[in-house]
Amino acid sequence: MSESSERPVSASGADLFKVAFDLEAEREDWPPVSVERLWGEKTEVRFEIRVVNTPFFVPGIAYGDLIRVRPDNERRELVFESFASESGHSTIRVVFLRRNLRESVENQFRDAGCSWETTSRFNLLAVDIPPTVNYAEVRPWLAQRRESGDLEFQESAISTLHRSQVNSTS
């Protein structure tokens, strides 16, 4: 069986491209990779890409955000150059500290209207919080789970909308 040479397409039918994000170490063991590659689709602006998945390790980027890229001929790939604008989505990372919690946490995210990507390699969820979700309703149960020692979460990219929702309840 041969692999297809066709480029994947987004839900809108646009061709998808992988974009490399070089990561700086926050600590000696984090992040556990030096490069993360995210899918994106071209916009009408030259070298501008809309991110179409949720990052596991790239800080400050969420689903739908617009970024600028540059071609790296030596590496033969597109490389992240700069952030252009936010989409209104937010990204959080969840690491499970206790076993057998994943299903109940995923159900809470699903009920709230969030989606996520997962990797068993790192026992991690990369959660997309769309603009239609009130983050001020999600954050308290996450904080409660953190306080009980069930999980740890990191707010990787919190949109202006979600930040204002949390701040208005403080």
Rank of each mutant, 00 (worst) to 15 (best):
S120Y: 12
N73F: 14
K18A: 08
V58L: 03
C114N: 02
V79A: 04
G64W: 00
S87I: 07
L97N: 04
V79D: 00
D22Y: 14
V138N: 06
H89F: 03
N123D: 13
D22C: 09
I92N: 05
F96M: 08
F96S: 12
L78H: 03
F56V: 05
P32K: 07
H162P: 09
S34D: 15
E48P: 01
R98V: 12
S12A: 14
F17S: 10
N107R: 14
A25V: 08
R7F: 08
W30F: 15
N53T: 09
M1I: 09
R98C: 08
R145A: 15
E6V: 12
T43S: 04
V94M: 04
S85C: 09
E24F: 09
V138Q: 00
Y63W: 05
Q108W: 07
Y63A: 00
S164H: 06
N73C: 12
A14F: 02
Q144H: 11
R27C: 13
N134E: 05
P140Y: 06
S164T: 13
S164W: 01
S120A: 09
D65N: 04
R121D: 13
E26K: 13
S148N: 09
V133Q: 07
T54Y: 00
S85F: 05
S156Y: 07
Q108Y: 07
V133T: 10
V9W: 04
T132N: 07
L78R: 09
L142W: 01
F153H: 13
S164G: 01
T132P: 01
Q165A: 00
F80E: 05
R99G: 13
E147S: 12
S104A: 07
V133E: 01
N107C: 05
Y63D: 04
R93L: 10
F109L: 13
L101K: 13
R70N: 14
C114R: 05
P32N: 04
F56I: 13
G113I: 00
G149P: 00
T119Q: 04
V95S: 15
S4K: 13
E117A: 11
W141E: 08
V9C: 07
R145H: 12
V133L: 05
V166Q: 02
H89R: 02
G149C: 02
R146P: 00
T160L: 12
Y135N: 01
A157V: 02
G13L: 06
E77D: 14
F21S: 03
E41V: 11
V166Y: 01
V127T: 07
W141M: 03
R7H: 11
R27K: 11
V35F: 06
E74Q: 15
I49L: 14
R98Q: 15
F109K: 01
A157T: 08
C114F: 02
K42L: 09
S5F: 08
E117R: 14
P131F: 00
G64Q: 06
Y135P: 02
V58H: 00
E81C: 03
N53H: 01
R27F: 10
Q154H: 14
P130I: 09
S115F: 04
T54W: 00
